[in-house]
Simulated assay, not measured.
Amino acid sequence: MNRIKLLLAALAGSLLIGCGGGGGGGGQATSLEGRVLSIVTGDATNPATTVQAIGGSPSTTTDLTDGSFTLTGVPKGTTQCQAIPGNSWPLFTFQFPAANGTTDVGDLWVGPEQVTVHGVIHSSVDDTPVPNATVRFAGRQATSNSSGEFDISGVAYSSATQVAFWGIIGTINATGFFEAEFSTSPVTADGSNVVDVGTLLVTPSGSSNPPGLPYNITGRVLPIGSSSGCIVTLKESGSAVRVFNVGSDGKYYFWIEPGTYTIDYQKGGQSAPTQNATVTQPNSTVTVPDVTLN
């Protein structure tokens, strides 16, 4: 009889532990939210892309309208996921800060090719290398070495068109410095599949001259929220030179050489009036009036 009681007590204890009882918490799960976008079109992938945790489970598929996804049941602390396009494109692996609760992983870019984005991080004050800077671009990331150099491998690319690739904004974070942003425009991949962005400057956080932004045309598509997934196309003489896929904040950005441009807006059957933008100086920002989808 005592033996039976002991067995029952042990079974009850194991059940309590397995359910996270007593304020414990093994097996906590979180969810990932984001968008998977095509480096060729700047739009959602079609067919849909499978997004999964490393190892294949759990998994979900992207929305064909705007590329959005929600991946639930992901272990807390997860720092990577994979995207498997529904065509012949390669598998992509993406990194992000440790997941906790509902984690927004941002825009994850996929395409027919993969390249390495190479560059060097220097201080804008004394031109010295900045080590241990985290550099993020297109859902991939790397850390600068003691010489300030970084290589972000496995970045989505298309040799046929760079209009979406050049529209992606990369970020640089280093202790003691302002966050900096950068664009790869107008660099293309070399014969070794390397996109060399050269030297990127970061400004010490104690400086009175924070860094400028890496775009010179910006605007908003309304209504904010429902304009997510709108494709904004920047054209010169009728030809597309940049595309941007609007997120939940309704904003879009372009970095472009001085010139006269038109901007088109399209989301499914909705559109907004074409706008004009003239950039006279590379470092001056043109703010385009808000447009509304109809």
Results as ranks from 00 to 15, higher is better:
residue 3 R to K: 14
residue 8 L to H: 12
residue 9 A to R: 13
residue 10 A to S: 10
residue 12 A to Y: 08
residue 17 I to H: 08
residue 19 C to L: 15
residue 23 G to T: 15
residue 23 G to C: 15
residue 25 G to H: 10
residue 26 G to Y: 12
residue 29 A to H: 10
residue 30 T to K: 12
residue 30 T to D: 13
residue 37 L to N: 10
residue 37 L to I: 13
residue 39 I to M: 15
residue 39 I to Y: 09
residue 44 A to Y: 14
residue 48 A to G: 08
residue 49 T to N: 09
residue 49 T to V: 15
residue 50 T to A: 13
residue 52 Q to E: 15
residue 52 Q to H: 14
residue 56 G to D: 09
residue 58 P to C: 13
residue 61 T to A: 08
residue 61 T to L: 04
residue 61 T to H: 07
residue 64 L to M: 14
residue 70 T to I: 10
residue 70 T to F: 08
residue 71 L to C: 15
residue 71 L to M: 09
residue 72 T to R: 13
residue 73 G to E: 04
residue 74 V to A: 02
residue 75 P to E: 10
residue 77 G to W: 01
residue 78 T to R: 12
residue 80 Q to A: 13
residue 82 Q to H: 07
residue 87 N to Y: 02
residue 90 P to L: 12
residue 94 F to M: 14
residue 100 N to E: 15
residue 101 G to E: 14
residue 103 T to N: 01
residue 103 T to H: 06
residue 109 W to N: 08
residue 110 V to H: 01
residue 112 P to S: 12
residue 112 P to R: 12
residue 118 H to D: 09
residue 122 H to T: 06
residue 125 V to Q: 02
residue 129 P to I: 08
residue 134 T to A: 09
residue 135 V to L: 04
residue 137 F to I: 13
residue 140 R to S: 05
residue 141 Q to H: 00
residue 141 Q to C: 00
residue 141 Q to E: 07
residue 144 S to M: 04
residue 149 E to M: 06
residue 150 F to M: 03
residue 154 G to D: 12
residue 155 V to A: 10
residue 156 A to W: 00
residue 158 S to R: 03
residue 159 S to D: 05
residue 163 V to H: 12
residue 166 W to C: 06
residue 170 G to P: 02
residue 175 T to D: 07
residue 176 G to V: 02
residue 179 E to Q: 06
residue 183 S to Y: 00
residue 184 T to M: 03
residue 185 S to H: 03
residue 186 P to K: 04
residue 187 V to Q: 07
residue 187 V to N: 07
residue 188 T to L: 07
residue 189 A to K: 00
residue 195 V to T: 03
residue 197 V to S: 00
residue 201 L to K: 02
residue 201 L to D: 01
residue 202 V to L: 05
residue 204 P to Y: 08
residue 207 S to W: 04
residue 207 S to T: 06
residue 208 S to C: 03
residue 215 Y to N: 09
residue 220 R to D: 03
residue 220 R to A: 06
residue 223 P to H: 10
residue 231 I to E: 10
residue 232 V to C: 03
residue 233 T to R: 05
residue 234 L to M: 13
residue 236 E to W: 03
residue 238 G to A: 08
residue 239 S to N: 12
residue 241 V to H: 00
residue 244 F to G: 06
residue 247 G to W: 00
residue 251 K to D: 00
residue 252 Y to L: 08
residue 253 Y to H: 05
residue 256 I to H: 03
residue 256 I to Q: 08
residue 257 E to W: 01
residue 257 E to H: 01
residue 257 E to R: 04
residue 258 P to S: 09
residue 261 Y to D: 09
residue 266 Q to H: 02
residue 267 K to P: 01
residue 268 G to N: 13
residue 268 G to A: 11
residue 270 Q to S: 13
residue 272 A to C: 08
residue 276 N to R: 13
residue 290 D to F: 01
residue 291 V to N: 11
residue 292 T to E: 09
